[in-house]
C-alpha cells in the first residue's frame, strides 16, 4: 500500500466545479476496497481501492500484465476476489455471480471478442435485451412475437451500423464488425456501469472513430459510469475524465489525465523507460 501515490485530486475538483458537485452529491456507484486476487503466490490484483463516480469515464491504464483485465474480471464477477470487496450502490457484490452483477447493471464488453458465434447478429443483441426484460422464462411464447424486443435490437444495431448484417452469423463478421457487435451487446444491456476492455483493439483506423463517438455519446448522457481499459494514449486523453494507473497489480496513481500522465512513475510504468528519454 505504501507505494500508492494519489495524484492531486483536490485541485482537479476545484477546477471543474460541475463534475465536482456531481461527485459530492451522488454516491459512488461503483467502488472497490482493498480488492485482491492471488493465483498461487502471485497477486495479480493487489489491494486496489478505487471509487468510480457516476457520470464519469475512468480510464484504467498500465503496462501489459498490470492486472487491468483481472481487475475488470473481479468487478464483473468472472473471477472471485481472494480478499477485499466490490461495492455497487452501497451493496456488497463481492460474492455475487456474473449474472447477478449483470442484472444489477454492470455491463461488460470483453477484450477478446466474446459472442455467440453461430447465432445471428440480431440474435446476439436480442439475447442481451431479453436478459434485462426478463421474458427468458416464458417457455411457450414465440421469441419472434416479441416485436418490441426486435425493434430495440435493430435500433441498437443501427447505432453501431450493423443493421444490414442482422441476419448473418456473428462468426461470419469481420474482426472490426465483431468488435462493434461486442459493443452493441453492451449497449443492448442498458447497464449503469459500462466496462470497455480495449474496445478498439485490432480495429482498422477508419472503424475506430465510430466506436469512440459511441463511447463519447454514452459519456455525454452523464448517466453512466464508464470504465475503460485502453492502450492508446490519444484515446485515453480524448475520453477520460480520470485515469487510474495499475502496475504489477497495484494502483500506483489516480487523478485527472493531465496530472497523471506526467507523473514519472506513470511515464516509466506505462509508457516504458524509453518515454523518459
Amino acid at each position: 500500500m505504501g507505494d500508492r501515490i494519489f495524484a492531486s485530486a483536490k485541485s482537479e475538483k476545484a477546477r471543474s466545479g460541475l463534475a465536482a458537485s456531481a461527485e459530492r452529491n451522488a454516491p459512488a456507484l461503483l467502488a472497490t476496497d482493498g480488492l485482491s486476487i492471488r493465483f498461487g503466490g502471485h497477486a495479480a490484483v493487489d489491494g486496489v481501492s478505487c471509487r468510480f463516480p457516476p457520470g464519469t469515464l475512468t480510464a484504467i491504464v498500465g503496462p501489459n500484465g498490470a492486472g487491468k483485465t483481472t481487475y475488470f474480471n473481479l468487478i464483473s464477477g468472472q473471477l472471485r476476489a481472494s480478499s477485499g470487496e466490490v461495492w455497487l450502490n452501497g451493496e456488497r457484490i463481492t460474492h455475487l455471480p456474473p449474472s447477478a452483477r449483470a442484472r444489477r447493471g454492470i455491463g461488460r464488453a470483453f477484450q477478446l471478442t466474446n459472442l455467440f458465434p453461430n447465432l445471428s447478429v440480431l440474435e446476439n443483441v436480442r439475447l442481451a435485451i431479453q436478459a434485462r426484460s426478463k421474458p427468458g422464462f416464458s417457455l411457450l411464447r414465440l421469441a419472434d412475437d416479441a416485436t418490441e424486443i426486435l425493434e430495440q435490437a435493430f435500433a441498437v444495431l443501427g447505432r453501431v451500423h450493423l443493421e444490414n448484417r442482422a441476419n448473418i452469423a456473428a462468426a461470419a463478421l469481420s474482426h472490426g464488425d465483431q468488435r462493434k457487435l461486442e459493443v452493441a451487446i453492451l449497449l443492448a444491456m442498458q447497464p449503469r456501469i459500462f466496462m470497455f476492455d480495449e474496445p478498439t483493439a485490432g480495429m482498422s483506423v477508419d472503424e475506430v472513430p465510430v466506436l469512440l463517438d459511441l463511447i463519447e455519446a454514452i459519456k455525454a448522457e452523464r448517466q453512466h459510469t464508464i470504465l475503460l481499459v485502453e492502450h492508446k494514449m490519444d484515446v485515453v486523453r480524448r475520453l477520460a475524465d480520470r485515469i487510474v494507473v495499475l502496475h504489477q497489480g497495484r494502483l500506483v496513481a489516480e487523478g485527472d489525465p493531465a496530472s497523471v500522465v506526467n507523473l514519472p512513475i506513470v511515464r516509466e510504468a506505462y509508457l516504458g523507460r524509453s518515454a523518459l528519454s
Partner: peptide
C-alpha cells in the same frame, strides 16, 4: 421461445450468457 433462445446462447457461449 425466449427460453429456447437462451438455451442456444448457453450452448454457444455459456460464459457470455452468464455475463448478460
Amino acid at each position: 421461445s425466449p427460453f429456447g433462445r437462451v438455451l442456444r446462447a448457453i450452448r454457444e457461449n455459456e460464459f457470455r450468457a452468464e455475463a448478460l
